[in-house]
Design a protein around this nucleic acid. Structure first.
Length: 560
RNA sequence: GCGCCCGUAGCUCAGCUGGAUAGAGCGUUCGCCUCCGGAGCGAAAGGUCACAGGUUCGAAUCCUGUCGGGCGUACCA
C-alpha cells in the first residue's frame, strides 16, 4: 500500500510543486482508496478547488500507472486498479508472514520501558494490569520496528512503608502462613500494623527505625526479612506474568538503585540546582509554573521516591544511552514525572526530552478509587480465573469436540481481559465492570480471535489450490485490502504514540470487515481462480489479524 | 483554592497532522440461505459532538472562558 501512496504523493508533488502533499482517506471507501483535498493548494493558486481538482485529475492520470485519479468536487480521489491491489497487497503479506507490518526503521536505536512495577507484599489488582499489558505491548511494537528494547520491571520494594512491613513481620509474623500464602499474609500484617499504629505511637518509631536500618545498608535481621519478603512476592508475580505472556529483560527493584542514591544526589547538588528548605534538600521548580519543589532528601536524612527515580534514570541513561525512556505509570503520578523531567532540565541534561511519562487513566470501581488497604480491590487472579471459566463454559456449549479445550479457554479468557484493557485510549479512566470483561461479543478480544479461528478453518478445508488467482474477483473486498495495506503504518503510529489502543481499534475494524465479507462471499467450491483469489484474501487477513493480536499480547487460536 | 486530564447515541467507545452525509459495539426492535464456525451476518431506531465565544473557505478536531467529572497538590509511593 505504501508504494501506491508514495507514487500518488510523488505524482502530486511533481505536478503541483508541493513539498509533502497530505493524503487522506475518503469518508466513503467507494470514492477511492486515498484522497487529496485540494482546498489549500487551490487557495495558493487563487482558483476554486473543484476547478483545480478537475485539472489535476487529467494531469495525474497521465503520470500515474495502475492508479486512477477522479475529481469529486474539491476532492481528488485515487483508486488503485483492483487486480493490482489484491495481487500486490496479498503478495506483500504472504512474503512477510509473521513479519508483515514490521520494519527496520528503529535499528540501532534503544528504548527503555519501565512497566508493570508492582509493590511487593501487595496482591496484583486489575489496576496493575494496565501498566503491565500496555507496557508489554509498547515493547513489542518497538521490537517490530527493529528497536533494541529493554523492558524493566521496577519493583516497588523500597521506601518507608517497607520499614513498617518488616516491623510488622517481626511483631506478628508467626500468626500467619508466610511461606504458604505470602501475599495475603503480608497484606494482613501490614493492615494490622497500620491500624495498631493509631493507638500505639511506638510502632511508628519502630517502623521508621527499621527503614533507617534498611537504608543504612547493614546486612542484619531487618535486611534479611526484607529480602525474604521480596523473594516470596516475586514468585507470586511470576505466576501472573506467565499467564499474561509477559517477560522482562531486567527485574530491578528500587533497591537496586540504592547504592547509587548518594551519587545521584551529589550529581544534582553539583549541578547547583538544589537548596535547603525547611530542613529538606529540594530542587526549586517555580520557574516551570505553579508546581511544588522536588524533594530529594527528607529532614531525617532518608530518601524519597523522586530520589530513587532520579538515580534510576541516571543509571539507565549511562547504561543504555537510550533514544527513548518510557515510564508506563498511572496518571495519578503526572506531577511526579513532570518534576523529574524539570529537574533534568534544570540540570541542563540534553536527553531530558527523551524521557516520557506514558500515563494511563485510573481503573476505578463503582465505589471509587481502588485501595488495597480499605479492601476495595479486585484481584487480577480472580478476574483471569473468571474469564477463563466463562471461556470454558462457552466452549463447552458451542464447540464441545474441541481438542484441548483447557488451553484454548486460557487463551480466550486471558485474551479477553488483556484486549479489554488495551481497547480504549490510554488516557481514559476505566470503571471496572466484570460483566464487560466477561463479554465475548462485539468489540472484544474473543470476537477477533473468533474471526481468526474462522479464517483458519477455511484454510484448513481448502487445502492447496493450484490455480492462478483471479484477482479481479476481489473487487468487492478492496476496502479490506486497503485496510490490510495500512497495517505497517498503524504499527508505526502506535509505537510512536505509545498507544496500543490504535492496534486494538484497527484489528477490531479489520475483523468486522472480514466477518462481513466471509458472510457475503464464499471461498470454497468456486471456480479455481476465484477460490484461489479469495483464499489468498482469507489467508492474508488471518495473517494480519494474527500479527496484530501478537503485538497486543493476545493469543490467536486456530480453533476455539 | 490552584494545577493536570477527561466530557461524542441510553451505556462503552472510534473519529488520523482541521476537510465530503459524525461512525462502531452493547442494549432495544425486526430479520438471516438445508451451503466455508450463529463467539457470526443484515436492517431499523437512537446525536444541539457538555455550554458560550473566537480563529478558518471549512471545527467533534485548534484557541479562550463557563459548567460537570477524575486525579494531583513539600518530607507516602
Amino acid at each position: 500500500m505504501q508504494t501506491f501512496l508514495d507514487a500518488i504523493r510523488a505524482a502530486i508533488a511533481a505536478e503541483t510543486g508541493l513539498e509533502d502533499p497530505k493524503l487522506g482517506r475518503p469518508r466513503d471507501p467507494r470514492h477511492g482508496d486515498s484522497a487529496f483535498p485540494c482546498f489549500e493548494y487551490a487557495k495558493g493558486k487563487g482558483e476554486p478547488p473543484p476547478k483545480v481538482a478537475a485539472e489535476l485529475e487529467t494531469a495525474l492520470n497521465a503520470r500515474l500507472e495502475g492508479i486512477t485519479a477522479k475529481a469529486a468536487g474539491p476532492f481528488l480521489n485515487f483508486t488503485v486498479d483492483r487486480a493490482r491491489l489484491g495481487e500486490t497487497i496479498l503478495g506483500e503479506i504472504a512474503a512477510g508472514g509473521a513479519c508483515y507490518g514490521t520494519s527496520r526503521e528503529g535499528e540501532g536505536r534503544t528504548i527503555v520501558i519501565d512497566f508493570s512495577s508492582p509493590n511487593i507484599a501487595k496482591p496484583m489488582s486489575v489496576g496493575h494490569l494496565r501498566s503491565t499489558v500496555i507496557g508489554a505491548s509498547i515493547q513489542r511494537l518497538h521490537e517490530a520496528l527493529g528497536y533494541r528494547t529493554v523492558g524493566i520491571n521496577h519493583i516497588g520494594d523500597w521506601g518507608s512503608q517497607f520499614g513498617k512491613l518488616v516491623a510488622a513481620v517481626d511483631r506478628y509474623g508467626d500468626t500467619v502462613d508466610l511461606e504458604g500464602d505470602p501475599i495475603p499474609s503480608l497484606l494482613a500484617l501490614y493492615v494490622r500494623y497500620h491500624e495498631e499504629e493509631e493507638s500505639d505511637p511506638g510502632l511508628v518509631e519502630e517502623a521508621r527505625e527499621a527503614f533507617r536500618e534498611l537504608e543504612s545498608g547493614v546486612d542484619g535481621p531487618v535486611r534479611q526479612t526484607w529480602r525474604k519478603l521480596t523473594e516470596l512476592s516475586l514468585v507470586e508475580f511470576q505466576k501472573i506474568y506467565d499467564r499474561l505472556g509477559v517477560s522482562f529483560d531486567l527485574v530491578r527493584g528500587e533497591a537496586f538503585y540504592e547504592p547509587h542514591l548518594a551519587s545521584a544526589v551529589d550529581r544534582v547538588v553539583d549541578a547547583g540546582v538544589t537548596e535547603e528548605s525547611e530542613g529538606a534538600l529540594v530542587v526549586d521548580l517555580s520557574g516551570f509554573g505553579k508546581i511544588p519543589p522536588c524533594l530529594l532528601r527528607k529532614t531525617d536524612g532518608t530518601t524519597l521516591y523522586a530520589t530513587r527515580d532520579l538515580a534510576a534514570v541516571f543509571h539507565r541513561q549511562e547504561e543504555f544511552a537510550f533514544d527513548r525512556c518510557l515510564y508506563v505509570v498511572g496518571a495519578d503520578q503526572r506531577l511526579h514525572f513532570r518534576q523529574l523531567k524539570h529537574v533534568l532540565d534544570r540540570m541542563g541534561l540534553d536527553w531530558e526530552p527523551k524521557v516520557e511519562h506514558v500515563d494511563f487513566g485510573m481503573m476505578r470501581l463503582p465505589e471509587g478509587k481502588m485501595s488495597t488497604r480499605k479492601g476495595r480491590v479486585v484481584f487480577l487472579d480472580d478476574v483471569l480465573n473468571d474469564a477463563v471459566a466463562e471461556a470454558a463454559r462457552v466452549i463447552a456449549e458451542k464447540n464441545p469436540d474441541l481438542v484441548d479445550p483447557g488451553a484454548v479457554a486460557e487463551m480466550v479468557g486471558v485474551g479477553a481481559v488483556v484486549f479489554n484493557d488495551l481497547k480504549r485510549e490510554r488516557v481514559k479512566d476505566i470503571d471496572f465492570r466484570l460483566e464487560e470483561v466477561l463479554s465475548f461479543e462485539g468489540d472484544t478480544g474473543p470476537y477477533v480471535q473468533y474471526t481468526h479461528a474462522r479464517l483458519a478453518s477455511i484454510e484448513r478445508k481448502a487445502g492447496e489450490i493450484e490455480a492462478a488467482p483471479d484477482w479481479e474477483v476481489l473487487e468487492g473486498a478492496a476496502p479490506i485490502l486497503v485496510s490490510m495495506g495500512r497495517f505497517g503504518e498503524v504499527v508505526r503510529s502506535a509505537a510512536a504514540r505509545a498507544e496500543p489502543s490504535e492496534v486494538t481499534t484497527y484489528v477490531l475494524s479489520l475483523a468486522r470487515e472480514v466477518n462481513s465479507w466471509v458472510a457475503r462471499e464464499r471461498v470454497l467450491g468456486q471456480e479455481p481462480g476465484v477460490t484461489a483469489a479469495r483464499l489468498a484474501l482469507a489467508r492474508g487477513a488471518r495473517q494480519v489479524i494474527g500479527n496484530a493480536l501478537t503485538l497486543l499480547g493476545v493469543g490467536a487460536p486456530t480453533e476455539m
